[in-house]
Design a protein around this nucleic acid. Structure first.
Lengths: 335, 335
DNA sequence: CTTCCTCCTCAAATCGATTCGACAGGCTCG
DNA sequence: CGAGCCTGTCGAATCGATTTGAGGAGGAAG
């Protein structure tokens, strides 16, 4: 019945008495409101945004960065009446490269939280489905909306800060290079083959400051324990640097812990800088020197891109600003 | 066309040549596969499970416990071809108590991750919609599937462990009592008014061991900083206890940090026990004494309940076992 | 050669809400 | 008093895939 629809939506012209009559009848018949599936089919949109998270949820969500961006995104989409469908990225090489949801789930827009690389199976699948896309932290791709931050220049800021403090022997602890998730000092060839754009850009920021790192240490994920492992390796090896730049705060905090463990003073013996600007209460009393990025705003920016895509527009790439936040973990080079 | 459907699904009897012909025509016409909305309407199911997370995502996801359970759940549901729709719980009292998604999103089953209490607006709304429900860590409710753990007896195990070490003056740091999220030592009346079942059960486990806490300290959320605040208050006040039991590992680790900050030795001056059995690399070299719960299994158990509900069954309440894991943060009472 | 059977193809009904268009009734204004 | 308008109600078409059941073509057996 068409009148019933009006009664529930409340949209069209309908007399108060009729509406009440319909609602009463509905309760009597045990009808619990309109079926969303019918509405969705008719309107041609599901009200759902598929969000492809990095790899295993477990790992993604242990990263406060993803979580805070996701939080901002969910908030922004909630305002628009849109829901977030969680889609796991490919977990490990033995599994199929794309989750079945990517192929068959109903979604009006898809968001790639980890910056799909060129020739990415998930990205390709979504394009074949003609799903509008927003990519976070990825590279520029035609016809794909994107949100990023000033990765490269932000890193340069941090490195310049260390240079001003007199450091010259600087090591870098990086985010993963590619899906293989290697670990350890990277060769030049390996560096040339970096697939993940974030890693590449932030590394480029070091070069931009005119610094050649004593070592580029690759980690398999942005987690404290991997940062600690890297820190141990770098600080206990020969040829110890006086400063370490990590590509995330979680990695940087691991480095700080490793230094403490080795009896080294931070920043007396070694300075440490991170990236993200997180609040890390358990690092107290230290406060990490870090390049702060606006996480919730990033989520909100993605939400705005989604809205524009749904309105039929073609959003321009958004690049959000970052700021160097100087904490207690960087200081003058030891004499 | 009906044959087209068969061609894409591959299910029915169809000749190979015909299928190829259909697929070719589809590509030519720019048809990108069947529209999920049509299928969903026809089949009467969306393949989506709505997961209502605690409160703000930000807070929920900073809690590794929620994250790991969610990870297990997503994995289990993925096997069943089901997707997870993220639904924020009510964030703060000023906002409407239920997210619009609860009312209008398409979902075959809903999961309440935080144990809906009686008279909970979200729970009521979902029941009015006749949505099958699974409640995690909630109380028993008729017609609602539930998954829980041996909260109460697990806590008793930890307290007995402390008793055996000779402790008699034991303080408790708890999870939130209700949505108001108070903070500080709780009065008896306030304790009687606890709304969140988890908090109540774990507190009951202390009583079961025959212990009357020197103080029951309420925190607004299971986060390191709140644990640290509680630890500072309890340890720097008069009448210092020799042991502290926290209702989560995050809280417990905050207490350990506070003790270190105050120059107290753990477990020399004060013993600390937690709950959850998390891996906390940044607490090194300490390993928290804790009641370990099977987090991924919990998610998988919820997945199984969902499957049974979808098959038309009425799953029985599942209670998963816990185990006391003794670490380095508990020791004999100081002399 | 006829009949029956099997395998495939296709037309039509169905899921449930939205929405356009038509119509009826009451009202106002000329 | 009649024409036109406005409000409220209802019938019918539509979204797109699934699925049932009928029918046709081809092969095999009697």
């Amino acid at each position: 019945m068409s009148t019933a629809s009006l009664a529930f939506s409340g949209a069209g012209p309908i007399a108060g008495t009729t509406r009440e009559r319909v609602l009463a009848a509905a309760t009597e018949l045990g009808y619990s409101g309109p079926n969303p599936l019918g509405r969705q089919l008719r309107q041609g949109r599901s009200g759902i945004v598929g969000v492809v998270v990095g790899d295993a949820l477990r790992r993604s969500f242990r990263d406060p960065v993803s979580v805070q961006v996701l939080d901002g995104l969910v908030g922004a989409l909630g305002e628009l009446g849109l829901g977030v469908l969680l889609i796991p990225g490919s977990n490990d090489p033995s599994e199929p490269p794309v989750d079945p949801l990517v192929l068959s789930a109903a979604m009006d827009v898809a968001v790639l939280m980890w910056g799909g690389t060129l020739h990415d199976p998930v990205l390709d699948a979504l394009r074949r489905r003609n799903t509008p896309l927003v990519v976070v932290e990825g590279q520029q791709l035609d016809g794909v909306a994107a949100v990023g931050i000033e990765d490269r220049s932000g890193t340069t800021l941090a490195v310049r800060h260390l240079l001003e403090l007199g450091h010259t022997r600087i090591a870098v602890v990086t985010l993963p290079f590619d899906r293989t998730r290697g670990e350890g000092p990277a060769t030049d060839e390996r560096i040339d083959g970096i697939v993940y754009e974030v890693t590449r850009r932030r590394l480029g920021g070091v070069t931009d400051a005119g610094v050649v790192p004593t070592v580029v240490y690759e980690t398999p994920a942005s987690l404290v324990e991997h940062g600690a492992a890297a820190g141990r390796a770098i600080l206990s090896g020969p040829d110890r640097p006086t400063a370490i730049v990590a590509q995330s705060d979680l990695l940087a905090s691991g480095v700080v812990l490793a230094a403490r463990e080795l009896g080294l003073s931070v920043p007396g013996d070694v300075s440490v800088a991170g990236f993200d600007g997180l609040d890390l209460p358990w690092l107290a009393p230290d406060v990490l020197t870090s390049v702060a990025q606006p996480l919730a705003e990033k989520g909100a920016a993605v939400g705005a891109q989604v809205a524009e895509l749904l309105a039929g527009g073609t959003p321009e790439r958004v690049v959000l600003p970052v700021a160097l936040r100087i904490g207690t973990t960087t200081g003058p080079v030891p004499v």
